[in-house]
Design a protein around this nucleic acid. Structure first.
Lengths: 232, 232
DNA sequence: GGATACAATATGTGATCACAAATTTCTGCC
DNA sequence: GGCAGAAATTTGTGATCACATATTGTATCC
C-alpha cells in the first residue's frame, strides 16, 4: 500500500483516526480512563506517530480530553454538560434536518424506515452497541441529505461527546421508554411529507424525549465515569 | 522551559497551535494557498513535529482543509457554505447568548461597551484587522459568560471558518453599512436588561445584518480565494 | 507561447530516538 | 494496613531520519 492518498488507499493516520473515532462512538473506551499513545500503537501494530496525530484530531473534536499531564481520555459526563449537549443537538440537528428536505428521495425514505426497524430490533434484543450504531445511522442518514460542509462536522462533534456516556447509562428501561413513544416514526412521516417545519419539530421532540430525558434522570456517578462492572 | 504542562509553561505544540489559530482568525493566511509543515517550522524555528500536530487540530476544527495530497490550506469560501455558516452562527450563538444572561455582571457590561467603542474606532480607522479582533472579542466576551464546555468550541470552529474570508472581503463600504445600524448597541441593551429573549433576537439580527448580508452581496471569486493584490 | 518529458527539489508520512516528567512499583518503618 | 521515600518504569514531547510521492524547474520541440 502506497502512502499517498488515492481513492482506495488511506494513510495509517486516517485509518487510526477512523478506528478510534468508531470505538469512541460505540462506547468502547471507558470515560475517565486514560489511554496511552504507545498502548494504542501496540494494539494497532503501528508506530506512535499516526496515533499521536489521530488523538490530536479527536481532542480537537472534543471526543477526547487532555489532562494537565498530556494524558488523553474520553471525558466524564456531568449534568450541565449533558444539558448543553441537548441544546446544541436541538439547534444544530433541527436546522440540518430542515436543510435536508430538498434532498429527500424515496430511496432515502426506505432507508430511514429500514434503519428504524433495525433500531427496534436492537432495543428488543437488548443490544446497546447495536442500538448506538443504528440510531446514529438513522439520524445521520437524514442530516447528510443537506449540505455537509458546515453542519455535519459540528453535529459529529456533539455526537462524539455524548455517545460514550450513552453506552454506560442506557438501561433496558430507558430504551423501552424511549421507544414506547417512537419519534422516529414522526420524523419519517414529516420527511415523507417534505414538511421542513414538521421535520424540525419532530427532530427536536426526539432529542428532548431521548437524550433530553436523561438530563433529569438518575444516573450514578459510576455511569458518568463508566461503570467498570458493566463494561464489556 | 520544561516540557510539562504548568500554569505558565506551555508545550511548543500548544504555542504553535495558538499562533496558527490566531493567524487564521486574523486572516493572515490566503485562502486556497497551501502552507507547508517545514515552512511553518522554519518560520517558528522549531521542528516539524509540533507543527504537524497543530495543523491536525486545525484541520479537525475546520479552520484548515486537507488536499488529496496532504497539503493544508485555509479553505476557499463559497456562497452555500457562507449561508450555512450564517445559519450555524444563528442557532449556536443565539443559544449561547441566552445562556450567558445569568452570568452578566456590571463589569462585563462595561467591557462590552468598551469593546463596541473599539469596534467603532477600528471601522473609522479603516483597520480591518483591528475590526476582526475587536469584533470577535465583543462576541466571545458575551458567549463566555455561559457554560463554556460545549457551545464555545462549536462557535469557535464556525468563526475559524469564516474569519479569513472576512479579511479579504470586507470593504470600507461594507463596514460602514454594517455599523450604520449598530446591532451591538441592541445586544448591550438586552444584556443590561438581562432579557434572554431580546438578547437572542439581537444576536440573530446582528448576524443576519452582518455576515448574512454578505451571502447575497457581490464578492469576487478572487476575494473568496484571497485577493493577492489586496493582501497586506 | 504552449506542450511534453525528464531531472531536481520539496513535501507529507511513518518510524525511531532521546529526554524530562509522570506514574507505578518497591522497600522500610510505624 | 497505611505512609513516606526512593527506585524503576512508563509516558508525552520534540527532534531527526528515510522514503515514496508531489511539485517545481529545465530543456526541447512544434
Amino acid at each position: 500500500m502506497t502512502r499517498r492518498r488515492q481513492v482506495a488507499a488511506q494513510t495509517i493516520q486516517e485509518q487510526t483516526y477512523q478506528a478510534l473515532r468508531r470505538a469512541i462512538l460505540d462506547g468502547e473506551f471507558v470515560p475517565g480512563r486514560a489511554m496511552t499513545i504507545r498502548g494504542i500503537a501496540e494494539d494497532l501494530d503501528i508506530s506512535p506517530t499516526p496515533v499521536r496525530e489521530a488523538l490530536r484530531r479527536l481532542v480537537a473534536e472534543r471526543a477526547l480530553t487532555l489532562s494537565g499531564t498530556g494524558r488523553v481520555s474520553v471525558p466524564v459526563m456531568d449534568r450541565e454538560k449533558l444539558a448543553d449537549l441537548v441544546k446544541a443537538r436541538i439547534c444544530l440537528e433541527k436546522q440540518a434536518a430542515m436543510d435536508a428536505v430538498p434532498g429527500i428521495t424515496a430511496a432515502e425514505l426506505r432507508r430511514l424506515v429500514r434503519l428504524n426497524d433495525a433500531i427496534d430490533g436492537a432495543i428488543a434484543a437488548g443490544n446497546q452497541r447495536r442500538y448506538l450504531v443504528t440510531h446514529r445511522d438513522f439520524h445521520f442518514s437524514l442530516y447528510r441529505l443537506g449540505g455537509g460542509g458546515v453542519f455535519l462536522p459540528l453535529i459529529e462533534s456533539v455526537w462524539l461527546q455524548f455517545s460514550p456516556f450513552l453506552r454506560y447509562t442506557l438501561s433496558q428501561e430507558h430504551l423501552a421508554q424511549y421507544n414506547a413513544s417512537d419519534r422516529h416514526v414522526e420524523i419519517i412521516a414529516a420527511a415523507e411529507a417534505r414538511d421542513a417545519n414538521a421535520l424540525g419539530f419532530a427532530v427536536e421532540a426526539d432529542i428532548r424525549h431521548g437524550l433530553g430525558a436523561l438530563v433529569e434522570s438518575d444516573w450514578s456517578a459510576h455511569a458518568a465515569e463508566g461503570d467498570v462492572v458493566a463494561a464489556p
